[in-house]
Design a binder for these strands. Structure first.
Length: 725
DNA sequence: GACAATTTTGTTTTT
DNA sequence: CAAAATTGTC
């Protein structure tokens, strides 16, 4: 009795909450949420609340239709998006939502493969190799096959292999279908590469997708299990799915056909990674009974921003076409800075940030600076540092790709997966143990001949010929070190294991001895990694090292990004997908840079660049500031910039130009903060000095500076490369 | 085997 | 111009 009334109570409460759920949505969004059964394509324009629709849809399924979360699969583009959605859904439906599968394609696939390892023909403890690891394997394969890497550059080979995998083509199939010498060789390298991965018990990113998508070929029953289970499937960012992902979704949804995909063909920006825009364009052909709903009301940007973005993307031919509208204010015009060079560009962006901060009371995390290539961040960073503005770079040299982080992770991976030869060779001499390339070569040779893993070989080091007794001891010590941790990992939580390891190999101690600023940063990164592991252990039900490694390989920089920190964010346009900021800068709008020179010749690629620009502009809520530079230093030479065609594609009524002349005038007459009498500056040659006198304004400011090294010097700010310090 | 000196190479975006 | 790869020296 008690139970029954409890049940009823919760049902009516549910109703009530469900009603309020739908009340939060506009009529079109509501329609999208209520359309639960059958294939559904939601064409969601930028800022139209698609994440909202997805979360509410899950809530609706669970609360209103009584679907068990266990039967729902939702796929997002980044782990960050998954995490956010998870939290929002949990708030709507409670803890039961934890039973649903929600993650990126790659993490969902990894999960399936570990569960179905037997059927998939992989070891459940497989490691995931990143691009650097992949390159090592390719190079080894080239060596083995005696193919010169001049003719077959590892990077190019890897791109071909990746393309093949995303098209679900095995190396055997590639060999069969390729006619010429070149392709035959690619197929051979591909085969050898796969062998290398297998021996190390490793999968690459593409394997995760491919192996899952082809799982049913040999094991239809495994597929059936998941087909039956996932009654409802939701896919976000569908415009960026590749062929393997497309096939996977199609297979999983074929049983119940309750497939809801959300996307925006205008935001398809991953063609170079194998994403096939046709997947979204042809959805209605694949699912003739599909319903299509367009979300066209934008809740993010001002009218002018939206108009500018739409005007540009309308130049594209291959698109479904939709008209975004907003109830927001007209807003300010977009601004375009014509800059002298990238230094000037940075200075003006920084200037604007300070001005906006002062006048409109914005905080630093209201700003994002977007650019096409990571290399551009350098000049921008310099500009920000010059004025002492804190910033966060997302991407670039990614956290998990840093040497110190990779070193520690390599140890941890080897501990969990002793056959991993790539990670073994990475760390066998870190810290220095006097084990060099020659010795490692002998070990690997022996391992290959004996058909066992290199680490295993080290256990029977006596049998390897041509090694000194001292060397044998070193090798054995190393093997025992790894073995002792492997033994401990069953009973010790991941964070303690990692901390003990770092201690044991004196990694931080070594860094301290270097005493450089760089070593300090490295130490910080190692500590950050360790605290990341601790955080994982506290949050995750499975605190083993295996569990941590399974997750960490699929994390990216954007997943670690802390938006609440008071700092300006810098990232590539690709990285900015799905985010929003009050003020958006897009730097480097020059022909050849954005659009990138390689893309200019092909119409498809040019259209993708244009979509990328569209993505950039539509990140902005209130203000968009574009900039280009007449001169840009690109490795050794200076490039003369011509403004990007995308600028001309914005109606001139929406765009306010700030010419180079105006800029210089303000620079010439404005006070330069940080250069006051009594403050300290740093000179590249003479080091730190104190300003004792100052005359003039702006770039013409003359300073008298006293340096400990050379005494008093008279300097013109324009020429001397001084930094406040 | 370690380290310094020299030569070569390379820039698109990322799960 | 840097970072990476290669060669040279101890």
């Amino acid at each position: 009795m008690i139970e029954k009334s409890k049940h009823q109570g919760s049902t009516s409460r549910r109703r009530q909450r469900a009603a309020s759920i739908l009340a939060d949505l506009n009529p079109v969004q509501r329609e999208a949420v209520e359309q639960a059964y059958g294939p559904l394509l939601i064409l969601a324009g930028a800022g139209s609340g698609k994440t909202r629709v997805l979360t509410y849809k899950v809530a609706y399924l669970v609360r209103e239709l009584g679907i068990s979360p266990w039967k729902i699969l939702a796929v997002t583009f980044t782990n960050k998006a998954a995490q956010e959605m998870k939290q929002r859904i949990e708030r709507l439906v409670g803890k039961v939502s934890l039973n649903m599968w929600l993650g990126t394609f790659h993490s969902i696939c990894a999960r399936i493969l570990r569960r179905e390892a037997g059927s998939a023909g992989v070891d459940p403890h497989f490691v995931i190799y990143d691009t650097a690891d992949q390159l090592t394997v390719v190079k080894k394969a080239l060596e083995k096959l005696e193919i010169s890497k001049e003719q077959f550059s590892p990077k190019m080979v890897l791109a071909k292999i990746s393309w093949a995998k995303n098209s679900l083509i095995t190396h055997q199939a590639l060999a069969r279908q390729s006619g010429n010498f070149f392709e035959q060789n690619i197929a051979r390298i591909y085969g050898e590469y796969q062998k290398g991965l297998r021996e190390s018990n490793a999968l690459d990113f593409d394997d995760l997708l491919m192996k899952t998508a082809t799982l049913s070929d040999s094991n239809p029953s495994v597929l059936e299990k998941y087909q039956n289970r996932f009654e409802f499937i939701l896919v976000d960012e569908y415009q960026d799915t590749n062929h393997a992902q497309y096939v996977l979704v199609k297979q999983l949804a074929s049983q119940h056909r309750n497939l809801c995909v959300v996307g925006d063909d205008d935001q398809s920006i991953y063609g170079w990674r194998g994403a096939d825009i046709r997947n979204i364009l042809d959805f209605e052909r694949d699912y003739p009974e599909a319903k299509v709903i367009r979300l066209e009301q934008n809740y993010r940007s001002t009218k002018r921003i939206l108009a500018a973005a739409s005007a540009v993307v309308e130049k594209n031919l291959g698109r479904k076409g939709k008209t975004l509208w907003t109830e927001k204010a007209k807003g300010e015009k977009l601004t375009l800075f014509e800059c002298a060079d990238e230094r000037n560009e940075a200075a003006r962006i920084v200037e604007t940030i300070l001005e906006e901060k002062g006048r409109n009371g914005r905080s630093l995390n209201d700003f994002v600076i977007l650019y096409r290539t990571n290399a551009q961040s350098r000049a921008l960073e310099d500009g920000l540092r010059r004025r002492g503005i804190p910033y966060i770079i997302v991407g670039g040299l990614r956290f998990y790709e840093r040497k110190e982080v990779k070193d520690i992770l390599a140890y941890l991976k080897l501990i969990c997966n002793p056959v991993d030869s790539v990670n073994l060779s990475r760390i066998i001499n870190i810290p220095r143990r006097g084990i060099g390339g020659v010795t490692l070569g002998k070990v690997e040779e022996f391992a290959t001949e004996a058909g066992i893993s290199p680490l295993h070989t080290l256990m029977q080091v006596e049998e390897i010929e041509g090694l000194s007794a001292a060397m044998r001891k070193r090798l054995k010590d190393f093997a025992e070190l790894i073995a002792s941790f492997t033994k401990a990992k069953g009973t010790t939580p991941a964070d303690r294991l990692a901390t003990e390891l770092v201690e044991k190999i004196s990694y931080i101690q070594e860094l301290r001895q270097e005493g450089t600023l760089e070593a300090q940063i490295r130490e910080d990164n190692v500590r950050e990694l360790l605290s990341g592991i601790t955080e994982f252990v506290e949050r995750s039900p499975d605190n083993s090292l295996d569990a941590f490694l399974a997750e960490v390989s699929l994390l990216t920089d954007i997943d670690r990004w802390d938006q609440s920190r008071d700092a300006v964010t810098l990232m590539t346009l690709h990285c900015a997908k799905g985010l929003e900021f009050p003020v958006v800068f897009i730097a480097g709008l020059e022909e050849g840079l954005f659009p990138l020179s390689r893309s200019i010749e092909s119409l498809d690629e040019l259209e993708e660049e244009r979509r990328l620009f569209y993505v950039g502009v539509t990140r902005a809520k209130e203000k968009v500031l574009l900039s280009f530079a007449y001169n840009r230093h690109r490795y050794n030479s200076t490039m003369y910039g011509v403004e990007s065609r995308f600028i001309e594609e914005i109606p001139s009524s929406l765009l306010q130009r700030v010419g180079i002349k105006q800029q210089w005038e303000t620079l010439m007459t404005g006070e330069l903060p940080g250069f006051e009498v009594g403050s300290w500056v740093i000179h590249p040659k003479w080091g730190r000095g104190k300003i004792t006198n100052k005359t003039g304004f702006g770039e013409n400011t003359k300073l008298v500076v006293y340096f400990d090294t050379v005494g008093e010097k008279r300097l013109l700010v324009r020429y001397a490369e001084l930094e406040p310090g």
